[in-house]
Amino acid sequence: MNGYLLAAGLTAAVVSAIHIIAGHVDPVRPLLASSMADVPKRTMHAVWHMVSVDLVATAATLLALAWWQPAGTELVAMLTAARFAAYTVVFLVIASRLPGRAPLLRLPQWLLLAPVAILAGLGG
């Protein structure tokens, strides 16, 4: 068993749960209640669900890789690490442009995404 990939998979599972539970309460409900036009509103709603699927699939993939370590484990782990590193950078860049104090803590998603990137990278 690959301990780093196991830790990455468990972390990704926690991130998935946080996204699905807290994300539905914080960004999704206000989005759906907003006066935004229907097409962009529903597009953003669909994108939120796509991210949910991606996070759950990533957790399952990392856990399977950790347990069975099939051929290609290293490549999938490194591609997953790169993807989550990119997600982390996106949140850091967008958060850094927020006005006010502690902008990086106002969009803290990067704090959840970075450990998955690091652990998957170490496991690959």
Rank of each mutant, 00 (worst) to 15 (best):
L98Q: 14
L107I: 11
A64N: 06
L113S: 10
G100V: 04
H49W: 10
A71R: 08
L112C: 14
A46D: 08
A81S: 15
A71H: 07
A12L: 05
G100H: 14
R101C: 02
V56E: 00
A86G: 13
V89M: 12
H24W: 13
W68P: 01
M36E: 15
I18D: 03
L55K: 07
G3T: 00
L104N: 13
A7M: 13
V47A: 14
V53F: 02
V116D: 13
A22T: 04
F84T: 00
A81T: 01
T43P: 00
T43C: 02
R83I: 08
L79W: 09
L31I: 00
M44R: 06
R42F: 08
I18C: 08
L113C: 09
P108V: 04
M1Q: 09
A117T: 01
A71L: 04
S34H: 14
D38G: 09
D26I: 06
A60K: 09
W67Q: 13
D38E: 14
A85T: 09
P108S: 07
R97E: 11
I18F: 12
P40L: 11
A102E: 06
A66Y: 04
A114S: 12
A102I: 05
T61M: 15
G9L: 03
V53I: 15
L62S: 02
N2S: 14
L104F: 10
L105E: 04
L111V: 02
A77E: 02
L79Q: 10
A64E: 05
Y87G: 01
M78N: 02
I18M: 13
R101V: 00
S35Y: 02
H24C: 12
A60Q: 07
R29E: 07
A60R: 03
L119K: 11
L55M: 08
L98S: 06
A8M: 07
Q69H: 10
G123W: 04
G23T: 09
G9D: 04
V51S: 09
G121H: 02
L79D: 06
A120H: 03
A7H: 10
I20T: 13
L63D: 06
M78G: 00
D54A: 10
N2K: 08
A120D: 03
H19M: 08
M78C: 01
A8I: 04
E74I: 02
Q69W: 03
V25C: 10
L65R: 01
A37D: 15
I94N: 04
H19C: 14
W68L: 13
F91W: 09
A22V: 10
A85N: 05
R42S: 13
V14S: 15
L112R: 00
